[in-house]
Nucleic acid binder design. Structure first.
Length: 625
DNA sequence: CAATAGAGCGCT
DNA sequence: AAAGCGCTCTATTG
């Protein structure tokens, strides 16, 4: 059972009880148009749970109980069913957020372990109610991170975990999505169960992390969480430049659109795949070069590439699609339109990095996703990245690891040509090309290097000879020959792959690998009887080992940067092997050294080959070369 | 009308 | 028979 807290006395008793514990779970329900954005949302429910107690604190829920059960009624005149607007009694008198959070301040700003399911959301939502105090300090617990570390392949939502662990199946009408639509007692029950199950899951999972040898990785992830709270301040953007970009892109798009219609001889919906198929493969008489997985002729850029410059519709369409993608995703997506809300608040975007967002250990990123910004060596990529606007008096610091995945491969494979190349300071693709083509590194041509890149894909992603041929612009026969030579020149790479497979496949109860810093990746399909699934799992094995180890290093670098951050320095973004920060201009040089050492200092030399990064100090991203 | 699937495309 | 993501648009389904 739980205590409903609506009076100062009850609040006082609740606080006293929770302050006597060394850990507690909590959960917030939020409302408002931007309920999902912790920087600006509004909390209307707070639930707390710990050993022996749960408390639910409503903070301005608008509804009492539902007056009529019916949600639809028949219109007598038309005979149609119409929705009945929900009507409620008045809600009970509730505590004000200000008095409530004042009473809870000592609890949240204590050394007690603060546990939530997706803790950055709850902690940052709560933090606003403690102005001037920043966010609650460690230690933290996050049941979604724990669940992910214990099984990255399963559904991680609180409700799914409850169903799996306890057979508990509450909330059939998605109460949390929009609490203000629902009656008081229903939300009260919902908030109670969310808080309670977070606490129960924590009790269940924390010891299992230790049992699975994940204590060090857990410590790292909780340090990452601390860093994410710091990053919750968001990224300042130049909204004026963004609006100008919108004007430019709209003009370009109108032009491109007209070009397509002119070439096609008629107007059609440029966003419609079926219509594009009709135009290209029926009216223009092109031969489909590729099929989609449902068997339809593909209209993607790769399928159209052979016709670019030869067919006017194709050329115009590809131009249109490029502009349209940039405008809708990166410009209107951020500024908002009549249909879509803006993602910019107080001149900032608040990208959400999810530390549990991938099976390999990488971050995923959303709302907006800044990990898929167009590359800085393209005209639109420059324009998008230049929207990041360090505050007056600040510089931008941007750094990425050089060829980190190839270095990790060299580390795992051990002594050999690749490994030696890194020790000699030779670029990995150049070293590979030199060995495969039997020439000196200085004689490696652009084309040879391109082939070496394709080989790297073949190793890291498990690409086959056909793919390598396509990437290297050569024949299947030649690609097979090249791969055979590579195997002869780099036997240690293939020995490493074989040994990894043997080791991992023999592990029980299900095969799993461990990354550089001990993260687990389970690959049950390595034992599948379906050869297709097995082959896929074998590709994932090598890729996850390398990609996951890369993720470990980047996460560790972020934590180190957060720890050694200079006063006024703010970590802005992380994109897989890249970290961007903002630093007061007068200490930018020193800040760049801190960033460099966080990523590639002596303590970060965790591989048997050197790890390097180059930090750029700039006012705009595009200046970073 | 809302939710989901499919295609496509941006990134490392 | 190329690993890991998220967003937008259209078409289809409930």
């Amino acid at each position: 059972m739980h205590q409903l807290v609506t009076t100062p006395d009850q609040l006082h008793d609740t606080v006293a009880y929770f302050e006597a514990q060394d850990a507690f779970a909590f959960d917030v329900e939020t409302v408002g148009e931007h309920r999902g954005v912790p920087a600006v949302n509004e909390i209307t429910w707070l639930s707390l749970a710990t050993k022996g107690a749960c408390a639910v604190i409503p903070l301005g829920h608008p509804n009492g109980e539902r007056l009529s059960k019916a949600t639809r009624r028949k219109n007598k005149a038309t005979g149609e069913w119409e929705p009945v607007p929900a009507r409620f009694t008045d809600p009970p008198k509730q505590l004000r957020p200000s008095q409530t959070f004042a009473a809870l301040e000592n609890l949240f700003f204590s050394d007690r372990t603060k546990i939530a399911h997706n803790a950055p959301f709850d902690l940052l939502s709560v933090a606003k109610y403690f102005p001037g105090r920043g966010f609650p300090p460690p230690p933290y617990g996050d049941t979604i991170v724990a669940a992910w570390m214990l099984d990255e392949n399963r559904l991680l939502g609180l409700k799914s975990l409850d169903r799996e662990r306890y057979g508990l199946d509450y909330d059939h009408d998605n109460t949390g999505k929009c609490v203000e639509k629902h009656p008081f007692s229903q939300v009260q029950e919902y908030a109670y169960l969310d808080g309670r199950s977070t606490w129960l899951l924590w009790q269940d999972m924390r010891p299992r992390l230790t049992a699975e040898g994940l204590d060090d990785m857990w410590a790292l992830e909780m340090d990452v969480l601390h860093c994410l709270l710091h990053m919750g301040q968001g990224v300042p953007v130049d909204t004026t430049a963004l609006a100008e970009l919108r004007t430019r892109l709209r003009a370009e798009m109108e032009h491109a659109e007209a070009e397509v219609y002119r070439a096609a001889g008629r107007v059609f919906n440029l966003g419609s795949v079926p219509q594009k198929q009709k135009i290209l493969y029926e009216e223009q008489g092109l031969k489909p070069r590729k099929r989609t997985k449902t068997g339809a002729p593909s209209t993607d850029a790769e399928a159209l590439a052979p016709y670019k410059g030869r067919n006017k519709v194709v050329s115009a369409l590809l131009d249109y699609q490029e502009v349209s993608k940039i405008l809708s995703t990166y410009v209107e997506g951020y500024l908002g339109t009549d249909e879509k809300p803006t993602q910019i608040f107080n001149g900032r975007i608040y990208p959400m990095l999810r530390q549990y967002g991938t099976v390999t250990g990488r971050f995923s990123c959303s709302a907006p996703n800044v990990q898929n910004w167009p590359r800085p060596d393209t005209v639109w990529g420059k324009a998008i990245r230049d929207l990041v606007d360090p505050l007056p008096g600040f510089k931008l610091l941007v750094a990425d690891y050089a060829q980190i995945e190839q270095r990790i491969l060299a580390h795992f494979a051990g002594a050999g040509a690749l490994w030696q190349g890194f020790h000699d300071g030779i670029d990995a693709h150049t070293a590979t090309a030199a060995a495969v083509f039997g020439v000196a590194p200085e004689d490696v041509t652009k084309q040879m290097r391109q082939v070496a890149k394709a080989i790297a894909f073949a190793i890291n992603y498990g690409a086959g000879p056909q793919k390598v041929a396509d990437m290297s612009h050569t024949t299947l026969r030649r690609a097979k020959q090249i791969l055979a030579t590579h195997e002869k020149q780099f036997p240690e790479v293939y020995r490493y792959k074989a040994k990894l497979l043997r080791t991992v496949r023999s592990r029980r109860p299900q095969p799993y690998l461990r990354t550089l810093l001990g993260r687990k990746r389970r690959l049950p399909d390595l034992l599948s009887h379906d050869s297709g699934r097995r082959a896929k799992a074998e590709r994932q094995l090598v890729n996850s080992h390398i990609q996951g180890s890369n993720a470990d290093m980047t996460k560790l670098a972020m934590v180190r940067l957060n720890r050694n951050r200079l006063p006024g320095m703010q970590i802005l973004l992380s994109v897989h092997d890249e970290i961007a920060a903002m630093c007061p201009a007068d200490i930018a040089e020193e800040g760049s050294r801190v960033l460099h050492d966080a990523m590639a200092g002596p303590e970060m030399q965790l591989l048997s080959v050197p790890v390097t990064t180059d930090v750029k100090i700039c006012d705009r991203w595009s200046e970073a070369k």
